[in-house]
Amino acid sequence: MKYIKQFTIIIAISLLGEILNRIIPLPIPASIYGMTILFVLLCSGVLKLSAVKETGKFLIYSMPIMFIPPTVGLIESWTTMQEFLLALIVISLVSTIMVLAVAGHITQFIINNNKKKTGK
């Protein structure tokens, strides 16, 4: 019963996200609306953590599996990809490293700076 209730709540919020995605003319997917809704519901106390916790954690834990089918689908667009495969791979890898480095270091720098200021 507990898991069915949790799953129902999660699906209901996903549905709400889908509806918002349909009405609001922005390229924001249902999942991001849903994530925001769940976060607000938890923070405001409307939903208790125990109402979604176990099923939610199971879904998060299984998430990598859900990426497999669409990624395998890349073989379908192989011919279009070949045109600029080298650029595609190099740009993807280099920019990922750059973003990771800059976002990480700037966040780390500001946090460390704040710690110094508050004297911790």
Partner: peptide
């Protein structure tokens, strides 16, 4: 064919939206 594989496999990927919604849980914690 990929199409035949995905005919079944896509049902796993359907859960991606609810799973992403649940990312709010660790964030709330």
């Amino acid at each position: 064919k990929y199409e035949d594989y995905n005919n079944g496999a896509q049902h796993i990927s359907i859960l991606l939206t609810p799973a992403t919604v649940c990312l709010a849980i660790p964030l709330y914690e």
